[in-house]
């Protein structure tokens, strides 16, 4: 399905094996009549995800094999840059992010006050429940980043965010694997970043791919890369 640029905002949805939930999300996005174009980045799904997306008539870029969520997001940023979009919104394909919150996340960026707005699961009245280990992990990373940047960060691993061109062209240039790039927070203090409270919907279909061992490995990668980027020159 081809895309014809109608708006100056692009919604990027990175997906990997989400055949059960992606259809519902795309339906509600299309029904909402957002002033935004929609793009799905399929990260080499082995199930019917790609077929579902195509059947909904949504523009999709499919990786030939799995390369991680960071790479998928980067593909989206590269496309947005090349196609001349001014704003992007990144939303997860598993249906946990409410399409209704898109405008909340987008408005601080569109108003020109901030370069990046992150939907935080820990702000406001949202009742985010997760495993004890994950909460601990996210808290450690958030505290570390808050300490290093002097900015209040509550949810650094959130997959729901909006960016302007200045911010997403950074992500289009720099290669990331499967964690949020801490360098943007540490070295680019001129990036205005804010957090917006969002509600998290309960996962309807499928299961999270995160196991305890994987979270430990993820923690190592994020914390190590934060520490390394402190010593990296800009």
């Amino acid at each position: 399905m081809a895309i014809r640029k109608k708006n100056n905002t692009l919604i990027i949805i990175p997906v990997f094996n989400e055949e059960l939930s992606i259809g519902t999300l795309l339906e509600s996005l299309k029904a909402k009549e957002n002033e935004a174009d929609i793009m799905v980045v399929d990260d080499g799904s082995g199930d019917k995800t790609l077929d579902v997306v195509v059947s909904k008539g949504v523009f999709v870029v499919a990786h030939p094999f799995n390369m991680g969520i960071g790479t998928s997001f980067q593909t989206g940023c590269c496309f947005a840059l090349e196609s001349g979009y001014d704003y992007i919104v990144r939303i997860d394909g598993d249906g946990q992010h409410e399409p209704a919150s898109i405008n909340d996340v987008l408005s601080p960026v569109k108003s020109g006050k901030f370069d990046i707005a992150i939907g935080s699961r820990f702000l406001g009245a949202s009742k985010f429940k997760s495993s004890f280990m994950r909460i601990i992990g996210i808290t450690i990373i958030a505290r570390l980043l808050t300490f290093l940047t002097g900015k209040k960060v509550t949810d650094p691993t959130s997959g729901f965010c909006a960016m302007n061109k200045k911010a997403f062209s950074f992500f289009a240039r720099y290669c990331v694997d499967d964690y949020p790039e801490p360098e943007i927070l540490i070295h680019h203090r001129d990036f205005g970043i804010t957090e917006v409270p969002i509600n998290l919907m309960k996962r309807k279909e499928g299961s999270s791919s995160i196991t305890p061992l994987k979270s430990l490995y993820y923690m190592y990668k994020v914390i190590f890369s934060i520490i390394v980027s402190i010593f990296r020159k800009e």
Partner: peptide, 9 residues
């Protein structure tokens, strides 16, 4: 790793 010659992985 700092000079991006080696991946964290």
């Amino acid at each position: 790793v700092r000079t991006k010659k080696l991946k964290e992985k």
